[in-house]
């Protein structure tokens, strides 16, 4: 009988090495600002943030699996809950809510009301079209791809654009069957 996935990441976050969120938030902000200076095009900045997030997600999944003791999620629904309640909590210290499921159970939304990435952030008018938190988008996509789920992640709501929450829509495109046994390095 596999271990039941934890329903919350509170304990993992509490026991993790933690740092002052200000450093994280300001560093992320400085990176975004530098990207805007270097790339000029907002679309290109969005793309790079997503790419950075993807690479981070690909790496963080290992830590997530190791620390969370989550074994295999039975379906995409459970996966989404685990990301929202355990994944977000153990890294960012906040939880997301899963909502807006479609009838097929392949599309849902992760809603964040509290988001440490945006503390002290205000977007100037020149940044219309910027998805400031696009790194999160990439992290979710990258991490899920490592557990064989190909997804498309898009922003539905963004508080920096005047919405009342952050809403990330996650759409499951396909589940790639895992191959066993893994090939040894040849």
């Amino acid at each position: 009988m596999p271990a039941v996935a934890p329903r919350s990441g509170d304990a993992i976050f509490a026991s993790a090495e933690r740092v002052n969120a200000e450093l994280f938030t300001l560093t992320y902000g400085a990176i975004v600002r530098q990207l805007i200076t270097d790339l000029e095009e907002v679309d290109e900045v969005n793309k790079q943030l997503d790419q950075m997030g993807y690479n981070i997600g690909v790496r963080l999944i290992d830590e997530f699996l190791a620390k969370s003791n989550v074994s295999r999620c039975v379906d995409f629904k459970e996966t989404a809950e685990v990301i929202a309640k355990v994944g977000f909590k153990m890294f960012l210290g906040v939880t997301a809510t899963v909502t807006n499921w479609d009838a097929e159970g392949t599309t849902c939304s992760l809603v964040l009301e509290d988001n440490p990435l945006v503390d002290f952030v205000e977007l100037p008018d020149t940044c219309q079209g910027l998805h400031y938190c696009n790194v999160l988008n990439g992290v979710v996509r990258g991490a899920l791809e490592m557990v064989s789920m190909k997804t498309e992640v898009t922003w539905i709501r963004d508080m920096l654009r005047g919405d009342d929450a952050y809403e990330l829509q996650v759409k499951l495109l396909k589940q790639i069957p895992e191959e066993y046994p893994y090939k040894d390095d040849e």
Binding site: F13, V19, A21, I56, L92
Partner: peptide
């Protein structure tokens, strides 16, 4: 104040440098 896991900062820095 508010805290985040150290891996958030570490992975952001690693990724920023590699970018």
């Amino acid at each position: 104040g508010r805290e985040v896991s150290e891996s958030c900062v570490d992975s952001l820095l690693i990724e920023m440098v590699s970018t």
